[in-house]
Design a protein around this nucleic acid. Structure first.
Lengths: 201, 201, 201, 201
DNA sequence: AATGAATGAGGATTCATTCAT
DNA sequence: AATGAATGAATCCTCATTCAT
């Protein structure tokens, strides 16, 4: 198999294995078995288990931010044609979908951030802060045009909101058994947030 | 040292060590050294490293719920004398304080829940759900007497709110360096939530 | 077995194994097998293979210098009663005996010094220089009282002489097969050096 | 690149790498990287890492002896026109120069001889003995014509002398940092040896 | 003539756990 | 009640070597 492919395959496979077993409990042998290669081959592509891990997180962090970017920037505000309702609903739907899709990597990230792996923690915080920043930015615009009520600290509000969303998502996503209609959930949470932010009539 | 004391000391010591290094990276030797005992002694008190861990989580879960219980139940609603503002402020302050105090055990819990340790995950979810349940209960009462706006699903709202609070708390508590005035933070977040929940004028 | 004993036994055993196979080609398993213990036990006593090695060299360096010290200082010069002949003969005999006894450790030392292990090389040079220093000191005294001819640089002469001795010793000691009458060899070399150093009649 | 050239380039490159890192710590990958070839290519030219090593030592041994040969045989004794002083001085200078030039290969040789690699050790001893033999031969001639004092065992004397020279050389050559005026050193050592060997006036 | 992908054997190290004292 | 000596299974990693292209 060409080097690029093999490398990618290792990255892909290891996300699953790490998410399933956690970094510590995952041995290089586990990954190699899952990838269908000999143990030695692993080290042709990555200097160490931890190197792979770092690269994996880095890569996903980049992808994550890239994918978030256009979504947050997608124009949106000031409102072109759609209603605030549609907007918020779309946003929450997207966030939930994202969660579902990247459940594994989120799990890994969170776990390592909690474990205070210096490098990983920094990366995690970077992502978090960027997400918060773009949402805060939007909220500021929304407040400016009076679509939502005015709050004194947009960043804190963004933190609060994202936390709420994540928590709801977590509760349903942390265990794979509880399969939920994410679309409905997104709609519900959006409605709720909308009500909370709605300007006084 | 009497057996009971020694046992308790081991539990106390291991919380710190586990929080610092994580379950996997903590060896029995680490715990024994921190507790100042020989490695053999450990097994006089606990059948295995994992046994100690289970017991530790169980014990803290019990304590946690016990301590939460009276606080949530403390009566509160319908409002005796204090304003809604005071109430919410008090609540958030308490939650933040709780975070700070039990940072270690929260960290352990969260990490293990994410690691999908069947037993630990269940415990974690139990705690989480109980917290959500009591908050949801209160919210329902508050809606009933019109102190806050009406929302269709109180449980989801509670989840959302607790998530928001936790997220703000996390952002500041995850790294020990960023020392923050928790009292001020609690006040800010309370104000924000209050505004969000306030009934239409 | 008591810890002290085991520790010492490991040090003793490993000298032989290292000398036989060289540091690199000696595995911890080799040492453990030679010492009759399990592989894990090794790490109860030494942090790593290299730690053991360092300690081993350090310990022998200390012993070596200690044992050399009184020998070189044994008074000797200015000549009490014995002749120069006796003195030099005794000295060379001792050096040869020392070689034979510590053949292994000399081998290890020299090899590592050549391998430019920073730490080991420094140790080796220290020993060498000390040996040279004491011999140079004696030579200076001997020149002063006219027992040997005068040379301009005592240190260089000492280096030269010790090198000569070591080289002869090496030639016979490097391979274990060639068993030689060391006493006779010492006497021969002593006579030779003596003739070389003898003052002009 | 033509096969012959590549082969030679591999030999040349590997001397440096082996001298720097030692045989054991040098991997085929190291050599290939230093030579700028793929790992597979190596085995087109040498059957194994050890094969290369053997060939390398053999080649250098041959060169070494060849270069020594004419020098030692260069006639010299009985004295044509020059003085004994000039002769000995020239000899020592040459030996020192040789050391400096072949520091790497000497290092490898010595290390392997000490490591008791059967094959390498034999080779090393062969070289050593040949050097000793030619010097002994010369000494015998010198004694015969009364240029130096008479010693009973010319071989042992040669061993002693070469050892002395090598030791002085070693002391300065073992670490690359201590840059020394080799010419001056050679002159000093020559004067010293000369004085030691000079016949009684 | 060249190579890079693949690998398994081997070596250092960690660690939960046992057991005799 | 305490312990420390002992261990083997498990894990990360290296590396000489093979082979299809």
């Amino acid at each position: 198999m060409p080097a690029d492919e093999r490398r990618q395959s290792l990255l892909d496979v290891s996300v699953r294995v790490f998410a399933q077993r956690g970094y510590e409990r995952t041995s290089v042998a586990h990954i190699c078995k899952a990838a269908g290669i000999g143990r030695g081959t692993f080290y042709e592509y990555f200097g160490s288990k931890h190197d792979l891990f770092r690269e994996l997180l880095g890569e996903h962090a980049r992808r994550l931010l890239e994918r978030m970017e256009p979504f947050y920037r997608k124009g949106v505000l000031p409102l072109a044609g759609g209603s605030v309702q549609d907007l918020v609903a779309a946003r929450f739907h997207e966030i939930f979908a994202h969660f579902r899709e990247h459940r594994d990597i989120y799990n890994i990230f969170l776990r390592e951030a909690l474990a205070k792996n210096a490098a990983t923690g920094d990366l995690f915080r970077l992502i978090q802060n960027q997400q918060i920043a773009v949402v805060a930015d939007e909220l500021r615009q929304a407040m400016a045009i009076g679509v939502i009520r005015k709050f004194p600290d947009a960043t804190q509000l963004a933190t609060f909101l994202l936390g709420g969303v994540m928590h709801v998502a977590f509760k349903y996503l942390i265990d794979e058994s509880a399969e939920v209609d994410l679309d409905a959930l997104a709609a519900d949470v959006a409605a709720m947030a909308l009500a909370a932010l709605a300007p006084a009539r």
